[in-house]
Design a protein around this nucleic acid. Structure first.
Lengths: 326, 326
DNA sequence: ATAGTATGTGTAACCGGTTACACATAACCC
DNA sequence: GGGTTATGTGTAACCGGTTACACATACTAT
């Protein structure tokens, strides 16, 4: 392996000059620059990032902490993070937290020792003391950790208004709202949006809390549909719940969208594959991940970050579970 | 930050002794061991992995190279890899290759410089010269790179026999087989299995090559169903294709499973959410990932690896797209 | 002419571990 | 008793970079 000393020898300069040239730090004359460039070329020198890390206490590693990559919401996010990270020369470490603060903390400690450059955190934990006192750059998704940590999230409330209105405009008179877990910020924002929109309409509605879990949602909706056969619209706080609702509706013989219309929230790929296709409030997950990563890298590189709160617009995607508006 | 020298001083021994104790290498007396243990405890010393890496030229980083985490097959695999890696003290770096040899190679080179411990490679590229000459431990998924690299794959051929027979036993007389891309080993094995099973039956069949892509599969199947309305069974080489087939069938008004039965291959979570639920030949993706990771870690740690070829059994999962057998 | 600043470079210490080697003592064997 | 081997430890070099500091020269301003 060729080292910086080999390069220095070949170029006839000192290692300090080589290092300065390579890092663009300090003064290097044109002559020296040329000699070093040539030596690097000839020796096919490549800098050893581990050696560098050891004394700069920095690296180009980014930790991506998310609850579970298996949750269909996260792969696209991870993909975005990885794409952007790669384009800036960073490498992504995947950390499934299972929403367990111990696991999160453990990862943070472990990766700190590796001089990790920063973290992107998608966690549902509302309290996160272990993030607060870290000096490391962090960007949060969907959840504010504290004022100093930038947050990227969807415009959840507006999305919920959009989704609710989609059902109202299509004539729903008896709407079931599947509220997400109360511990989740985004779920609460969606709830607020639903309440706002429904408050301005004169229709029946019922609110049920429902985890972002397929089978559970299906069961809950089956029960609700049996209790109240008059339900003609369901707005679910997640696509997975909406898929469960659709399944329940089909099993109970409801005609979707004729007798019952369903709108989900998230915009995961699966929605398109259902029959009928799932109407949903689609988040731009890729964009969220990409922006979060760019902001993180700016912070890592001490470049100015304009804002600390990024709200990504959502988009209503109408497919088969809603009727065309008359 | 406390260093090994602080510990040595506190324990009244040399750094060499501390290092030997910490690594379990060389001789360390009981007295010295005790003194070091106590010093470590008191100083809350934690070894710096970067410094260690620099001269051992090793790390506890594992590279996971896969085509695209967004493909529903991979999240579960990634999850398994991460779980097992974590339990052995390794950390996973996520690499989306897009099946582009340049990207793969780039990742390998980049991570080699970080002294990565090994790679798990899920690639569809049949040729992979850049893996062959690496001295790094590698485990391949679904595809043989060369004789020295262990492979973990599903029992694809047997799975295809299972899936085909499921349709035959349920009375299908005119089966459409959606063959996967010819560049993929697993797809070819599934093709072989289909051919074997169909060869022993006296039914019509037709084979169409079809990418593992939802919308494309849907289009292809729409066309096929229109050309030959007599098709009463579809065996798809992937669940995504099966989902496309199901969508096509629904759009064309075919009754599934009464007039047309469908079986997929993969066992991704989405299959359950479709209506009717997708019958499929399920791979144990988590197990594949877990085994691959364990084998890799054994190789990394120079422990004996029994075999170099692991075939994980598949399981026929019958849901709503097939009838109950009469 | 002279101080002061900008430019340019090299030496050597340092980051925090590992390990080759030298050396010392104890145990074992014939 | 003397040679071998096993046990135990410390010193210092090394992994491959970065950077503080000292020093040298060129340019600018007064």
């Amino acid at each position: 392996m060729t080292t910086i000393r080999d390069v220095a020898k070949k170029a006839g300069v000192s290692v300090a000059t080589v290092s300065r040239f390579l890092n663009g730090s300090g003064y290097v004359s044109a002559d020296a620059a040329k000699a070093v460039t040539e030596a690097v070329e000839e020796l096919e020198y490549e800098l050893n990032p581990v050696a560098r890390s050891l004394n700069t206490k920095r690296s180009n590693l980014i930790g991506l902490i998310l609850p579970d990559i298996t949750n269909p919401f996260f792969p696209e996010l991870a993909r975005a993070v990885e794409d952007v990270a790669l384009s800036y020369g960073y490498t992504v470490i995947l950390c499934n937290s299972d929403e367990d603060p111990k696991k999160e903390k453990n990862y943070i400690e472990t990766l700190k020792k590796k001089y990790i450059a920063g973290f992107i955190v998608t966690s549902n934990q509302l309290e996160a003391p272990h993030y607060a006192n870290t000096k490391l750059p962090i960007v949060a998704l969907d959840r504010a950790i504290n004022e100093k940590i930038p947050v990227v999230s969807s415009n959840n409330k507006e999305g919920a208004v959009l989704g609710t209105n989609a059902l109202l405009e299509r004539g729903c008179q008896n709407i079931l709202f599947l509220r997400g877990p109360e511990a989740l910020n985004p779920a609460n924002d969606r709830y607020d949006g639903f309440m706002e929109a429904i408050g301005q309409a004169d229709v029946n509605h019922r609110i049920v809390t429902c985890p972002f879990h397929y089978a559970d949602s299906q069961k809950i909706v089956e029960r609700e549909l049996q209790n109240d056969p008059g339900i003609d619209g369901i707005f679910a706080s997640s696509d997975v719940s909406a898929a469960g609702a659709l399944k329940a509706a089909v099993l109970l013989g409801r005609k979707v969208p004729d007798d019952l219309q369903i709108v989900g929230f998230d915009g995961i790929a699966m929605g398109e594959m259902l029959s009928p296709g799932l109407s949903t409030v689609a988040q731009d997950v890729y964009k969220m991940g990409a922006i979060a990563t760019r902001v993180l890298i700016k912070r890592i590189e001490n470049k100015p970050v304009e804002e600390s709160f990024y709200e990504i617009p959502v988009k209503l995607v109408l497919r088969g579970t809603t009727r065309s508006v008359e």
